[in-house]
């Protein structure tokens, strides 16, 4: 069980529990409500500033770095409700498909990270690599700058097809949380373009490992090396001596890219719950 399963799982994997998705559509404003500035307006470069601060702190020294990292992990600059600064979690394709069956509506949107890193705008539906989930997406026009490129609504079957296509191309799937019990998106990430992945792999917060790890069946593996190309985490390397794939399960995020890419079904995903030594590897 990951921290979010303990908090919000109600006995099941938390992201397969329908209670953890955005739910109510309308909130009546209080009569005495004052217009408040949204977080984005107050701090437009929020995400970017967090990363810059960490790099600057690395130049200053270990104490400064630890203090800056602690502020990020306590979530001061990030989303309220994310424990330890973990906003996202790696999700294998099969679970992502279950998620799109459950959440609605589903809107394909442009990726914020790719927009920031490469100044690309994903304007047409085949280009999109991110998906917004839940009723909040119906109000996307409040933030046309964030949703530059528009929102393309898809049915759950179309969403599955979209996920499978991105999986074939080699993107790992992850969920994104935007508040307590509020799974608001499915991202398709690759290092280093994805900010969340870069922060996890380089600084140690923002994305949680998934609920599975990959295992290789050496009898079936023919040493083609496709899986090694697909691993985003450096967990899967070719064991050159015996010419078979080798997976470091301590590093594995359980994204399942190696499994879906294997032409001989030599790799399978195993639930972490069955492996006692991995219970605290997140």
């Amino acid at each position: 069980m990951c921290i979010y399963c303990e908090l919000w799982g109600d006995g099941m994997t938390w992201y397969l529990n329908p209670k953890n998705y955005p739910r109510h559509m309308y909130t009546l404003p209080r009569p005495d409500a004052k217009p408040r500035a949204a977080a984005g307006e107050a701090n437009p470069g929020g995400y970017i500033n967090a990363e810059r601060a960490l790099v600057d702190a690395m130049e200053k020294g270990p104490e400064e770095f630890e203090a800056t990292l602690k502020a990020m992990r306590d979530g001061a600059d990030l989303v309220q409700g994310c424990v330890g600064g973990f906003m996202g979690q790696a999700v294998p394709l099969r679970d992502a498909e279950k998620m799109v069956e459950m959440a609605n509506p589903l809107g394909l949107i442009a990726c914020l990270c790719r927009k920031a890193m490469l100044a690309v705008e994903e304007r047409s539906r085949p280009e999109t690599t991110c998906m917004g989930l839940g009723v909040g997406m119906l109000k996307w026009e409040r933030w046309p700058e964030r949703y530059k490129g528009g929102v393309h609504w898809v049915s759950s079957d179309e969403a599955k097809e979209w996920l499978r296509d991105l999986d074939t191309r080699g993107f790992m799937h992850s969920l994104m949380m935007f508040g307590p019990r509020f799974i608001g998106g499915i991202c398709n990430c690759d290092y280093p373009v994805c900010d969340a992945l870069a922060m996890r792999l380089d600084f140690g917060f923002n994305m949680l490992k998934g609920h599975h790890v990959a295992m290789v069946d050496h009898d079936l593996c023919n040493g083609c090396g496709i899986c090694a190309q697909r691993c985003q985490f450096g967990a899967l390397k070719m064991n050159v001596t015996i010419d078979k794939a080798n997976i470091d399960q301590m590093r594995c995020f359980g994204c399942g890219l190696c499994e879906t890419g294997c032409p001989r079904q030599a790799i399978s995903l195993v639930e972490k719950a069955k492996l006692p030594a991995l219970q605290e590897v997140w």
Binding site: Y26, L28, V135
Partner: peptide, 10 residues
């Protein structure tokens, strides 16, 4: 001011 929706899925 908010109706507490517990689950809303297919």
């Amino acid at each position: 001011r908010i109706l507490s929706i517990v689950e809303n899925w297919a």
